[in-house]
Amino acid sequence: MENEYKNVYVFAEQRNGVIQNVAYELLGKANDLAAELGQKVIALLLGDGITDKAQDLIEMGADEVVVVDRPELKDYLTEQYTQAMSQIIDHCHPRIVLFGATTIGRDLAPRLACRVKSGLVADCTKLTIEPDKDGNLDFFSTRPAFGGNLMATIVCPTSRPQMSTVRPGVMQKRTREVGRKGVIQPFTPTFDPSKFKVRLLETKMNDNKVADISNAKILISGGRGVHDKEGFAKLQALADVMGGMVSSSRAMVDAGVMDHAYQVGQTGKTVRPNLYMACGISGAIQHLAGMEESHYIVAINKDKYAPIFSVADLGIVGDLHKIVPMLTERIKKELEK
């Protein structure tokens, strides 16, 4: 059985025809996994009028793209997508299928895993190919559990495909290879519309069209110590000077000071900017889970015992309300040089 299931597949999530970043990140990781296995990377592109996006996926790392271009797949709906995906799995026999751990991926993947009766691992932060106890190469998915307090490595020894959802922002996408050649394979599923019991009536895009903090190279992040909107204005001024963005801990989101879209952590976003400056953030484990992979971490906090200092490359014990505005002025001068 083992051998007829092969290749690493990526569900290339798109919304309104726009390929989501997490799909590129997964293609990047799938390349590592496929290389270890000596197999191919295959992207699954589902939607309506999306065939012309297939080349984009090839340039970002797919060797092949299976395209299901059908009006039934215009908007994401669980049953329509599950029918198409389960037929692809029955036909192609993937070894591994990866999904972004988004509201779409986390709705589709479990429905599909149960339909094809295979194992699924949620919200992974690390994927590896390693020898199992018999020396055969196997797929290992590692994920946080217990609110980020514990890591668990999960295997799916006998059933196929092995499926995982992966947090956006965790894997690295590859550099685009313009003009890269690959195979584009159309796939035509047979839909059973009698099972289509859910109809989309309306989609209301969020008003505050916020830029995605997971794309920022520099994040000036605020916690309880920032106190209020005026405090965040100080962080924003520093972020503006540095060309970065402001983000927030859960405490300030719960307090209604910041919108959920800016939240870093276990129940918010995972970020890995070049600079993460944590201002007045104590550093609960759930927060650290979302930012500790940042390249350089500066923490400013009044409490020298704050756990944030345990992950910071540079820790400053002091008052952010004084230091941040001074730092803003100082960096402004530095950049004018």
Binding site: F140, V155, F309, A312, I316, V317, G318, M326
Partner: peptide, 29 residues
């Protein structure tokens, strides 16, 4: 179909340096 292969507490990163300085010194650092 899935089994826990192993579980382990998250590896803690080597903590960096923590400084208690005047605001001016902190900014320069």
């Amino acid at each position: 179909p899935t089994k826990v292969h192993k579980s382990f507490p998250k590896a803690l990163k080597e903590p960096g340096e923590v400084f208690e300085l005047s605001e001016e010194e902190a900014v320069e650092l």
